[in-house]
Write a protein that binds this DNA or RNA. Structure first.
Lengths: 109, 109
DNA sequence: GCTATATATTGACGTCTGTCTATATACCTG
DNA sequence: CAGGTATATAGACAGACGTCAATATATAGC
């Protein structure tokens, strides 16, 4: 955060972080990001995650709609990849200037 | 994410991201992080954020409980600072290895 | 002690969210 | 075309969440 963010920017970033605010979606992203060739078939997820197929499908749909993952249909199988650029937007929103400020706080109030 | 995260680790990280999944809390963090001397008095926030004092107090309490901010009482005024280390934990969870994998995906299914 | 200001807490309410079952849809093989 | 497998969608349900008004608590000045 280089300068205080505006209300609408906060709205967008919050929507992005909301997707990460669920352990199931975090694990899905982590599994995809760490899979061989950087992609994963959807059929692997319900058993690995321990959730029903409709639940996993629901979460994958949310991630795809937000652009955090991309989905490629190959026959009847759906393959997913993480979009590093979209994840970087959220990560960078948490980056801060490293040098301390020299200005004094206001006397209050 | 260096390797797939475990269920309990995902739970903890999700709890952290959940705090960022609200535009009001994001703006609070951003305002504190970008204020002179890196600290901000609570009394400045309701008007700046456009929310009632109890709402702002509620959000500050959540942020402080999670350790994302620290609170210092000076007389009747409460001053807040961002905890960069705790923010870094969340940011680093979104960091990825940069080099592409050479392994092939499994044939399916 | 009273009054004013700053902040925290309580409770209620409406909205949002993650889960499941059931089912629909799409693809593929024989 | 029928049956099997993979995936998406619908709807219901319980729980979580952000907001406010009202109020309690703490600090400070007179």
């Amino acid at each position: 955060m280089v300068e205080p963010i505006k209300s609408d920017e906060a709205q967008e970033l919050a929507a992005g972080f909301k997707l990460l605010a669920d352990p199931v979606r975090l694990r899905i992203l982590s599994l995809i990001a760490n899979s061989p060739a950087g992609e994963l078939c959807g059929c692997d997820l319900p058993a690995t995650i321990g959730r029903s197929q409709p639940t996993v499908s629901h979460h994958l749909s949310l991630l795809a709609q937000a652009g955090l993952v991309t989905r490629e249909q190959r026959g009847k199988w759906a393959w997913f990849r993480v979009e590093p650029d979209r994840v970087a937007v959220l990560r960078d929103a948490l980056s801060q200037k490293s040098e301390p400020r020299s200005q004094k706080s206001d006397a209050h109030c």
